[in-house]
Amino acid sequence: MLKLIDKILDSIQALGNASLGRLQALGRAGVFLLSSLMWGGPGSAGFGDLVKQIYSIGVRSLSIIIVAGFFVGMVLGLQGYTILSDFGSEAALGTMVSLTLLRELGPVVTALLFAGRAGSALTAEIGLMKATEQISAMEMMGVDPLKRIITPRLWAGFISMPILALLFSLVGIWGGAYVGINMLGVDEGAYWGNMQASVEFYDDIIKGLIKSLVFGLVVTWIAVYQGFDSIPTSEGISKATTQTVVVASLAVLGLDFVLTAIMLGSI
């Protein structure tokens, strides 16, 4: 009996210990974000660095985003058509495809792909910098690695994500149009006309972009933090990279719900 109580107490303690650890990590990550952003605007670490990071984070994610966007749009066109034609309202296909993409799939899928493509690369890059003592070397030169390494990457993610999400949705809408109009015979005027009648510039497009701004910041934040906090061994870096993708994806999905709730509530 006593043993059982002991065991229960042990597991409660383990739980408490684990939550304290989590909480501590969260606090460290928060301080980390604040101190990197405190270094100021996007150009504070040199404009060249920012351009370089936008290139490796944003431009190099472009191909995967565009291909994925086109396919997602085509699938939406196909599925939407089958569902809508049951109600005889194929004309609403454009509305359905565009609203789905602009409000949800664009920002969310882009953020998930971004976490896999750019986030993991960021973590691995920074983890390796740590393992090869580049970060220590920078500190010993009297250069703050937060300012030189982290800040430009954070800003690059913040800037790239909305652009990527926008292009994803755009390509997706054209993908839906391609399937709907050219393959399934939805009236072209109805597709675009109904879309234009129901899509609101502020409510749908801008709010979608706000979502992806938040996702951009959060995903890059998680990625650079995981890299910076990783144990500088091959095992530690591989673990940190996995963590980045898992944590960032979950964070995006969770935040998406919160943001959607706030945005719908404010209408």
Partner: peptide, 12 residues
Amino acid sequence: MGMLFQSGALFT
């Protein structure tokens, strides 16, 4: 201070 690291720690 200057420091020379074992691996060199050059920025790759």
